[in-house]
Computed example of a mutant assay.
Amino acid sequence: MKPTPAPHLGAFLRARRAQLDPQECDLPATDSARRVTGLRREEVAALAAISVDYYTRLEQGRVRASTPVLAALARALRLDDDQQSYLYELAGRTDDRPRRRRAPQRLRPALRRLLDQLTHTPALVLGKRLDILAWNEAAASLYTDFAAVPAGRRNYLRLLFTDPAMRAMDRGWEHTARDAVAALRLEAAADPGDPELARLVGELSVQDADFRTWWAEHRVNSATYGIKRYRHPLVGDLTLDCDTWAASDGSGQRLVVLTAEPGSPSHDALRILRFWTAEAADTEVNR
């Protein structure tokens, strides 16, 4: 069966080439007056390394573009990720479109300010894949010196399974770990092509039998609150409320805050812990 051309593709190609400046596309300047706004058909064809006749038939909806031609046109027309997806959609080749480039995670400034203002309350910001993007000094006092962990390894789930101190401190470690695995499983469903997530799952599957078992269960969880019970080596038992707030900008970043009932032993223990670690830091600086 002869492939069906895409009638709306030509309109998009014409509109896009009209938006481009020849100099922006590194085309040589000419003395002749331009009768069209933007690029000519022959210029787009040259940039994409295809014949003018073939490109003309594409714009006229008389031929269906192949996947290599779509990739060449995306480069020639300087299409961003959204425009590339639209190009492949119009061409009827959604299964062939390239994976979107993933921008590096950047901490939202508002969340950084919140962390800085929470001076006595442990708080941290989790990004995609439960990566630890930022934390305050109280969180480092409670858990570990996150700054000493290489940035590429700074992941909450990874530390939960591989850091002996974090694992031993959590009196409800199995419940905490299973919930974290379920949260990651939910995220994997939303972005199954994430290579970093695949690497994390592969690494933990090799290293930990519990992770392999719980990952295979396909349990999902998006709980935003709960109770954490810790046995800290410096201040003893802690019972903390854990609340999570998701950023509203679609970044996937979450602010995690741990609080204790005012006047409770856990509240006093957090203050003592913060004091001790601050004093230890001052001593180290003054040596």
Rank of each mutant, 00 (worst) to 15 (best):
D81I: 00
D170R: 11
E187S: 10
G61D: 02
P5R: 06
E59S: 05
R271I: 14
L186V: 03
L111A: 00
Q207M: 13
R34E: 09
D210M: 12
D81R: 01
H267L: 02
W214Q: 03
A189M: 14
E187G: 10
P195D: 10
A18R: 00
T4W: 07
P3A: 03
V256I: 12
K228P: 06
A280I: 02
V63C: 07
L273A: 03
A151R: 12
D208M: 05
L159Q: 09
D268W: 14
R287C: 13
L270T: 09
D268C: 13
V285Y: 12
D163W: 09
L87H: 00
V125K: 08
A123L: 06
V125R: 00
D116V: 04
A140I: 08
R41P: 01
R212Q: 13
I227L: 15
F146K: 11
A76Q: 08
G61C: 04
A71W: 02
D268T: 15
F275E: 12
A72W: 03
V206E: 15
R93H: 05
Q83M: 11
R199F: 12
L118C: 01
P122C: 11
E187D: 13
D237Y: 07
G202T: 04
Y55W: 01
G92F: 06
E187V: 02
H175C: 14
A247H: 10
S141V: 11
R93T: 02
R158V: 10
L90E: 07
Y54F: 14
A91F: 06
T56V: 09
T244M: 06
T277D: 06
V125G: 09
R113G: 08
R97V: 07
N221L: 09
D191M: 05
A281R: 14
A91V: 00
T144M: 08
G202I: 00
R167A: 01
R171T: 13
R274T: 12
K2V: 11
A29K: 07
R113A: 14
E89R: 11
S222K: 13
V36D: 00
I132W: 09
D31K: 09
H175E: 14
D21E: 05
L142A: 02
P122L: 08
R34K: 10
R274S: 13
G202M: 11
V52Y: 05
R271C: 13
N155I: 00
P122D: 02
S222P: 01
A18P: 08
R64E: 03
A74L: 03
C242Q: 14
R57A: 01
R57L: 00
R212W: 01
A189Y: 09
A138E: 11
T56S: 00
A139G: 04
R102A: 06
S205D: 04
R62A: 09
A177R: 08
T283I: 14
C25G: 02
L159F: 05
K2Y: 05
L47T: 07
A147T: 11
P68Y: 05
